[in-house]
């Protein structure tokens, strides 16, 4: 293939590359610099509110992976269900969020924590006590817009100046 003026296109491309030398970096140094994740973050852990849960088992029925296990018994004196066992195998969980969406009593949330790596598979199984809604656990705003407002705003790359130095 013959070109009229060979090298013009390459030179043009190189000016773009050289201009990129003189701009702000796009990446962050992760463990030292941390970005805020989405307010609707879906991931890793579920948070369960024991008081609100009625033991209806909608979450377990909706879960496409069958990762939620719930065992209830009837308390005849108070006329309600008692949750004997509530267990999520987060190793099977695909974080689709359908359980949170389906819960009719607003008793199930996503946790806003990441970096939840474990050493063994067995540790991924969240029991009743691990899932409890404790004040120090931040709750994600997925399907709970009022909870989303309390969380820090997500860092967006669009907001960041990367063009000129």
């Amino acid at each position: 293939m013959k070109f009229e003026r060979y090298g013009i296109g390459i030179a043009k491309g190189l000016t773009v590359t050289i201009r990129h030398l003189l701009r702000h970096p796009t990446v962050n140094q992760y463990p030292e610099q941390r970005l805020n994740i989405s307010r609707r973050f879906r991931g890793n852990e579920l948070v369960w509110n024991r008081e609100k849960c009625t033991g209806c088992g909608t979450c377990a029925k909706t879960c496409p992976q069958g990762a939620i296990e719930i065992v209830t018994s009837t308390d005849m004196t108070e006329n309600k269900y008692v949750v004997d066992k509530y267990q999520v195998d987060t190793g099977y969980c695909i974080q689709c969020g359908l359980c949170v969406e389906a819960c009719p009593y607003e008793a199930l949330y996503f946790s806003h924590a990441y970096e939840c790596a474990k050493y063994r598979r067995g540790e991924l199984v969240q029991g009743k006590e691990d899932m409890l809604d404790r004040p120090e656990r931040k709750v994600s705003g997925y399907f709970y817009p009022d909870k989303a407002k309390e969380l820090p705003e997500q860092t967006m790359l669009v907001e960041k100046v990367t063009e000129k130095r």
Binding site: R40, R42, G97, F110
Partner: peptide
């Protein structure tokens, strides 16, 4: 990355949006 940021904002995840 900028688009994925927007998707993360609406759906909560970066690859499997659902």
């Amino acid at each position: 990355e900028r688009i994925v940021d927007l998707f993360e904002m609406v759906s909560g995840q970066r690859l499997t949006y659902n």
